[in-house]
Design a binder for these strands. Sequence first.
DNA 1: TTCACCATGTAAGTTGTTACATGATTCC
DNA 2: GGAATCATGTAACAACTTACATGGTGAA
Lengths: 193, 193
Amino acid sequence: MSLRSALLVLLRIAPMSGYELQKLFSQSVGYVWHAPDSQIYPELRKMAEKGLIEAEEQTRGNVATRRVYHVTDSGEESFAEWMHTPLKYQRTRDAAHLKAAYLESVDHESRLAFLNDHIAHWASELQCWEDEIAKIDALTTPMLNRRLEVTDDEDREKTIAFKRFAYEGLAERARTEISWAKRGLELADRFAR
Amino acid sequence: MSLRSALLVLLRIAPMSGYELQKLFSQSVGYVWHAPDSQIYPELRKMAEKGLIEAEEQTRGNVATRRVYHVTDSGEESFAEWMHTPLKYQRTRDAAHLKAAYLESVDHESRLAFLNDHIAHWASELQCWEDEIAKIDALTTPMLNRRLEVTDDEDREKTIAFKRFAYEGLAERARTEISWAKRGLELADRFAR
DNA sequence: TTCACCATGTAAGTTGTTACATGATTCC
DNA sequence: GGAATCATGTAACAACTTACATGGTGAA
């Protein structure tokens, strides 16, 4: 049910269409949660059926319509419930570490390729999160600013602080992965002929 | 297809039945990869159909049978191919960080509960990996020892080193999550009344 | 004989991926 | 007129979860 929570979270910030949600999911927010449009539209329909959100149908031009969803009271309740419910931590499924455990069975070049890929992947994620943190500090995040507009003065610092905290955690994880893989490169060099 | 790879990896160490694989998946190995029996048995069947593994049927007592699978040449090839193929890093879906970003919307106690849960979860994972590393160092890991038995002397150090390296990465990640959540506790205290 | 463990599955449902499908609007 | 973007979906499949279902073996 976490796609539902992710959608609720975003719609709470501002009413949006499926298309806009999908765009967010393929940009910065997408690095925390991602879903393709084929999953978003049906889920929005289901949420509307359950009364968690409501659609306001807008006509674009003469024919096209767009559905802008907003969170209902029942949706707010559902969000609060999710926030108060302990997370189910599911079992790890970590292909990278599984592979790493068997690197002795491949040649030096393949080891380097694997480790450099790992570094490149996490470096790009890190970049994304550092950018996001910089934007939070500069107050140039559109989504955060929209949220702050409807936030009491006294709660603004808190809102910003936890947002930053979340992204810091993601950045730290990326750094951990990078430094691990770099140590792997050193290890690989030790076993190179 | 990574369940397939995980099964191949384990069967390469030693021929095993589905039951034994399932037990490994719910013990130490299960912290790198996990799958329930309902997924394992059908997958083994499919792999046997494709010729990646072969079953040796053993009768237990008078009636029961157990199928001990071993990796075929074709399975070895498939393993090698997997090792040489770049990983597809899929998009993050991280409920913990998603929730963390909205901690300002709940009360102090709920914040503490969330963060302490996070710490407890990762502390238990960390414990598991540190134990595993200690066992690797003491050469008391049954699976690793089985692998070492069929490994050339010159490759043993390498085999041990990469295994340790993999678990170190998992341990470091757990430590990162714990220290992040601890900073979260400090942050929560700052906003407590 | 009862309990822990060995052993193998099916079934239904949810979630996520990939590919396909369509058409409108806006700006250059 | 064409390209980028807006906008909404369906279909098929793959992966994973949860619950159910069955029965044998071995040791106290």
